[in-house]
Design a protein around this nucleic acid. Structure first.
Ligand SMILES: [Mn+2]
Ligand SMILES: [Mn+2]
Ligand SMILES: [Zn+2]
Ligand SMILES: [Zn+2]
Lengths: 156, 156
DNA sequence: ATGTTATTGATAATGGATATCAATAACATC
DNA sequence: GATGTTATTGATATCCATTATCAATAACAT
């Protein structure tokens, strides 16, 4: 198969001694083209029209690879499947957290007060790693509630 | 079967028009007797010696009921199964967050700086509900990292 | 004590994710 | 550009947490 000539990601894959294959390129492309938080199956469905022989197994494996490379974040919004987003995507607040509707699972990204949040998070990381000896590598901050639509439905 | 005469929970079940059954009482007891964050199967294993005919299905259903009643919190530490804790348990910081080892899934509860955290959370809840029209009902705050033991293993 | 009905638990089924393994494609080397 | 090595793929089977079904049972209002 014709190899991917070169892309934004060639270097990152080289560094990790991984091959930049057609499926991997297409999967990153799909994540780069949306602001949604896609499940593995949704990624599969969006790659399929462009590359019909893609396998769902490959999507799962590739998303794992991308998470380990630090290119993709794995998210959990409580709907029994992992969801994925590019760590850095143009047009998205670089560091953001999520507001999740516990009924319909709609997700809103926010970065209001992110400076204050990050400042407190940094302080907590320092205190917790000293107190408990953890090497802290990340955090999850999300708010749960009812989106406007689900709030209206609940009223009826 | 002999009914549960009366317990700390009689009132709560009455209010919700639910029956306080033997399995339900035993499951709450198990959660009240530990500081661990138990999975459904772990709850089942701890009830079984006291009540051998308990069914795993009942444990799942009961945990759901308790979560809906607001007596129990459902937690997700990324190990592919839900975990549960009493919302209020003596000897536990009333409001706390979690520090999770991403390798062995060990969990540490913390409440350092909880006042500051809660203050910022309150502010964010207000701002987000105004901006996005969500009715916010809860939040998830957790730190991820490597516990001392897993840090040592990684060095080797 | 009795009747109604919520609850239980054995069983089967669902669905997201992973293990297996022969076929294939990426790419380092020449 | 051709070649050989080997990482990667994808069809398939399987795992495992959780849920659906439904007849039997137990809680509790009366
Ligand atoms: Mn996001
Ligand atoms: Mn806890
Ligand atoms: Zn909603
Ligand atoms: Zn650990």
């Amino acid at each position: 198969m014709k190899q991917v000539r070169s892309s934004e990601w060639t270097g990152a894959f080289k560094q990790h001694r991984l091959r930049l294959t057609k499926p991997r390129q297409l999967i990153v492309d799909v994540l780069g083209a949306t602001s949604d938080h896609l499940s593995a199956e949704e990624v599969y469905l969006r790659v399929h029209p462009k590359y019909a022989r893609i396998g769902l197994t490959t999507v799962y494996r590739t998303l794992d690879v991308l998470v380990r490379m630090g290119i993709v974040s794995r998210l959990d919004f409580g709907d029994a499947r992992s969801r994925y987003e590019l760590v850095e995507r143009s047009g998205k607040p670089s560091h953001h957290h999520h507001l999740v509707c516990s009924s319909c699972k709609r997700v809103v990204e926010y970065d209001d007060f992110m400076d204050e949040e990050v400042k407190l998070i940094k302080k907590l990381e320092k205190a917790l790693s000293r107190k408990h000896g953890f090497g802290i590598t990340g955090h999850v901050v999300q708010f749960l509630g009812l989106c406007p639509a689900c709030k209206t439905l609940a009223r009826a």
